[in-house]
């Protein structure tokens, strides 16, 4: 357990919940990065489980389908020796009309320690956190079009494996910004750390005043990609065509698809290519570059998801742990 001694023994982390990236401080982001680094080393070991959240119960409350994020949180919790429970919507009373607050009340009565929530409504996570106060930790795993903070943190972590810092780097997010919580969280995190964030997509998929979040807005791919250090593609939901926001996916691909030609012609040599997944291969990104290890860190993003989520769970639950028990025992 020697590596754990490198964890900050008196963390300055004060948040009971991780609801959004917008309210994270640079210091907090760096704490997550430092812890994630430690956990990613631990995950390389033959026995890759630490007992620091032993006895804690974490509930994954997913109102939207998700395989990778839910599995990633589940693995993160288990690697910290917490008991993780999946509260699937299809198998619960939520289907029978139970409201979010009713569900929260039930979970509270069961004596759980943390909830990881994904919900189709922006702000659902706020509502849950407001209800719980400091009694249960809430971690946002994606709410509507609002935020997906752990995705942005794992994206940053993946970038920091390729570069010392994102400060001054041109990072371009390509695609459906309007419906993307990943884009919003990334704009917050990356701009706080001094990156120059650019977004590009069809004008019908760019939200009003997105520039005021701290990014430069384009509707043409070439200037957006020009000299980019990082290109982050977003998933294009196929129903955007049905709702009239774009005429066809083919036209989208023609205008905004990221392919080898565009990447190699405009972006910096050695550009880092990212995608939060799942990919629509051949639509927003072509397979040849998505699978090209010279550019793509897409599989690293998935792997890093576990260590970053371990860090987040440890930090929010660590507040409760400070009084003694597992955390201090382990570190001591």
């Amino acid at each position: 357990m020697s590596t754990l001694s490198s964890l900050p023994t008196a963390p300055t982390w004060t948040k009971h919940h991780l609801i959004d990236a917008a309210s994270l401080t640079v210091d907090e982001i760096q704490q997550v990065m430092a812890e994630a680094q430690t956990f990613s080393e631990i995950l390389q070991r033959p026995v890759n489980k630490v007992p620091i959240l032993r006895g804690k119960v974490i509930v994954n409350l997913f109102y939207e389908n998700s395989t990778r994020t839910r599995t990633s949180f589940e693995l993160a919790g288990q690697s910290l020796s917490a008991d993780t429970i999946n509260f699937g919507v299809s198998t619960s009373s939520v289907k029978k009309g139970e409201t979010l607050i009713d569900t929260a009340e039930t979970l509270l009565a069961m004596g759980i320690d943390a909830v990881v929530i994904r919900h189709a409504s922006s702000g659902a996570c706020h509502q849950l956190a407001q209800y719980f106060g400091d009694r249960v930790c809430v971690v946002n795993a994606g709410d509507g079009y609002h935020e997906h903070p752990t995705q942005a943190l794992l994206d940053l972590f993946s970038l920091l494996q390729k570069m010392d810092s994102v400060a001054g780097k041109k990072i371009t997010i390509v695609g459906d910004i309007l419906h993307s919580r990943v884009a919003r969280s990334n704009i917050h995190v990356l701009s706080k750390l001094g990156a120059e964030v650019h977004v590009v997509g069809p004008s019908t998929l760019l939200p009003v005043d997105i520039g005021k979040l701290g990014c430069i807005v384009h509707t043409q791919i070439e200037p957006a990609l020009e000299d980019a250090d990082v290109v982050m593609c977003l998933r294009l939901q196929l129903e955007r065509q049905q709702s009239g926001l774009i005429p066809s996916t083919a036209e989208y691909t023609q205008l905004f698809g990221v392919n080898r030609y565009r990447l190699e012609t405009y972006a910096k040599p050695g550009v880092v290519l990212m995608h939060p997944g799942p990919m629509n291969r051949g639509i927003e990104i072509t397979s040849d570059i998505a699978d090209d290890p010279r550019y793509s860190v897409i599989t690293h993003q998935v792997a890093n998801g576990v260590s970053v989520r371990m860090a987040v769970l440890h930090l929010v639950l660590g507040i409760h742990n400070l009084k003694g028990d597992a955390f201090n025992e382990t570190v001591g």
Partner: peptide
């Protein structure tokens, strides 16, 4: 309302 805050909050806006 559609504007900076709807973008920030990720809520669909009414122009």
């Amino acid at each position: 309302n559609e504007g900076y805050y709807s973008t920030l909050l990720g809520l669909a806006g009414i122009p």
